[in-house]
Design a protein around this nucleic acid. Structure first.
Length: 589
RNA sequence: GGUCACGUAGCUCAGUAGGAUAGAGCAACUGCCUUCUAAGCAGUAGGUCACAGGUUCAAAUCCUGUCGUGAUCACCA
């Protein structure tokens, strides 16, 4: 359908070539659809970037004539206003848009039709939780961005692996183990008020942090130390945890057994939360397995003199004159060790990866810079061209940053869902749909914001369901669905008749042909909010159209058919988009 | 201090990969259900696009500088 626009480009290019006798970029030509149909702008505008205005007017006239001659069927006239060449389309053009969709059986997959991509493998690494506490709203943003981007790639025909790596090893887990031993020995989630098992583990972890803080305050007093780093060195609790880590890496049986027990509790909880969100992964990796690959690799790096051994026997990588520690002096590994290991594991498993995306918060930009730098150093060995860190900004709570690692002021996803359910229950009559509406609303609210922006999470505001929100999209869907249910139509081409399209119909049709472009833009910019903004605008167009026009009750059978077809196309696009964002689709609301 | 984001209406955010008179939602006010779902539609009011330069036919958008907010700068993951 964008053929017309493409041909406009070609014709403009050819003309400019003739005149200037040199190569012309697409940048010099801009072609726009106008969605506000005012009498000056027309339907399609061509803008040429040429310095001389006098010259431009001549060229516009020339180009206008050429295009008008060639597309008499579609174009009524052209006008030159200021710097713009405006074309006024015949209604026939809009009818063609509908017929184009009917020809493709109003099947969105036929319209997107991207066979070229089907051998390109995209791996999207998202969520990546630590196994020491439940998933919180920071994870939620991560998960929703990752999942939506994955689904768009899928829709565009790529092979997609949704991958999750669970950070199930490291000092944080050992802190949890110690906490259980010291403060909760013998207690299970069941014995602890039958609390959701991952929440129980979260309690263990934060108990450790609380006790550690107490101890450090005590150390300040006792040894008259002011520096936190020095105080930490004297902490007995941390010593315990560190010893536990060494035990763990040495495969100590007792330690591993307890570790497995606690992890099991966490995974059981994760599973339930993912189920509520309807998130499924194609692959789950565990840091406890991949870190060994990383460790081995680091030894290779020492041989190649890319990594170096420090005086205290820790191993580091020099990055902007800074020593980046890869292995501690006691030989235990770090986050980056695991990251390298996981990458190597994936390369071995999949062989040809077209693009690897890490969805990880923006606080880790530095970390990924290092990782990518290391990969570049090993370009003979690590063969991956496209690797990208999709970073997103923080989720603040009531104006404050959530420091999830240190303080117990996190909003867990489970609790958010509970609160939303309660709120929706008050507002909505149909009680069967509460869960769907509340999940849909939560998801939509997180996705609709550009990943680079901070989300200021506030229950009062977030629970508001008016405006650009899930319910609005859902309501639009249900409205059209009910019409089409009452009058089903076949995919039959519409005959040409002298019918004037209304602006609200034109608006929908112009937006409809942008759909593929929107999907592509969303992944090119790694921004799922582009898609939500699109379906919001489309929904607005549709509601306006619905309220101002008679569809089923129209006496003119031809117009009735035409409008029903518009409804059908919109319904399919909304359906597809909602599936991509993965918000529930309710036929009746 | 270095690096990276962000700064648009009272609030929350858009701004179509530089284009015409700056766009929505919330909150406020005014209309519209005898008519296909009013969880909707239409309208009023609200703006020095942080500030200052530069690039050009054209800048909220690109470049430079300043200010403000946040993140980060390693033996936490």
């Amino acid at each position: 359908m964008n053929k017309l626009i493409l041909n406009f480009y070609k014709l403009s290019k050819n003309l400019l070539k003739k005149i200037y006798n040199k190569k012309i970029n697409n940048n010099n030509i801009k072609i726009l659809y106008n969605t506000k149909f005012n009498k000056i702008k027309g339907d399609i505008t061509i803008i040429l970037s040429l310095s001389s205005i006098l010259e431009k007017k001549k060229i516009y006239k020339n180009l206008g004539n050429i295009i008008l001659k060639k597309y008499k069927k579609n174009i009524l006239k052209y006008e030159i206003k200021n710097n713009y060449l405006n074309f006024f389309l015949k209604d026939n053009y809009y009818l063609n848009i509908i017929n184009f969709f009917i020809k493709k059986k109003i099947n969105i997959n036929n319209i997107i039709n991207n066979i070229n991509n089907n051998k390109k493998l995209i791996i999207i690494d998202f969520s990546s939780p630590n196994s020491n506490k439940p998933l919180h709203i920071g994870h939620l943003r991560n998960i929703l961005i990752g999942n939506t981007i994955s689904n768009i790639y899928k829709k565009l025909g790529y092979k997609v692996i949704k991958s999750q790596i669970i950070n199930d090893r490291g000092i944080h887990i050992c802190k949890t183990i110690i906490s259980w031993k010291l403060f909760f020995n013998g207690i299970t989630p069941l014995l602890y008020n039958n609390i959701k098992s991952d929440h129980f583990v979260g309690k263990l972890y934060f108990k450790f942090e609380k006790e550690l803080n107490k101890e450090i305050k005590y150390i300040y007093k006792k040894y008259k130390i002011k520096n936190k780093k020095d105080a930490i060195k004297k902490s007995k609790l941390l010593k315990y945890a560190n010893n536990e880590l060494i035990k763990w890496e040495n495969n100590n049986k007792k330690c591993i057994k307890l570790w497995k027990k606690i992890n099991k509790w966490v995974y059981k909880g994760f599973k339930k939360t993912y189920k509520k969100l309807n998130i499924k992964f194609n692959e789950i990796l565990f840091e406890s397995k991949t870190y060994i690959i990383g460790k081995k690799f680091i030894k290779k790096g020492i041989k190649k003199n890319i990594f170096k051994i420090d005086k205290d026997k820790s191993i580091y990588f020099l990055f902007i004159k800074k020593k980046i520690i890869l292995l501690r002096k006691n030989g235990t590994s770090l986050y980056i060790t695991q990251e390298i290991g996981t990458l190597l594991y994936r390369l071995k498993k999949y062989k040809k990866i077209y693009l690897l995306i890490y969805v990880v918060g923006n606080e880790q930009i530095f970390h990924f810079k290092i990782l990518f730098k290391i990969i570049k150093k090993f370009n003979n060995f690590i063969k991956i061209k496209n690797i990208y860190h999709l970073s997103y900004n923080t989720v603040n709570f009531m104006g404050k940053k959530i420091k999830s690692r240190y303080k117990n002021n996190i909003i867990y996803i489970d609790d958010l869902i509970k609160k939303m359910n309660k709120y929706v229950k008050k507002k909505i009559k149909n009680k069967k749909k509460i869960k769907k509406i509340s999940i849909g609303s939560i998801k939509y609210q997180f996705i609709k914001i550009n990943p680079n922006k901070i989300i200021n999470f506030d229950f009062k505001k977030s629970l508001n369901l008016k405006g650009n929100n899930y319910i609005y999209i859902q309501y639009t869907y249900a409205r059209i669905y009910s019409i089409l249910k009452k009058n089903k139509i076949k995919n039959k081409l519409l005959k040409k008749k002298n019918i004037k399209f209304k602006n609200n119909e034109k608006n929908i049709l112009i937006n409809i042909i942008k759909y593929k472009k929107i999907l592509k833009k969303s992944i090119n910019k790694y921004d799922p909010s582009i898609l939500t903004k699109y379906i919001y605008i489309l929904s607005k167009n549709v509601n306006n159209f619905y309220q101002k026009n008679k569809i089923l009750n129209n006496k003119n059978i031809y117009i009735k058919k035409l409008r029903l077809n518009i409804c059908k196309i919109v319904l399919k696009i909304l359906y597809n988009s909602m599936k991509i964002i993965d918000i529930p689709i309710i036929k009746k609301i």
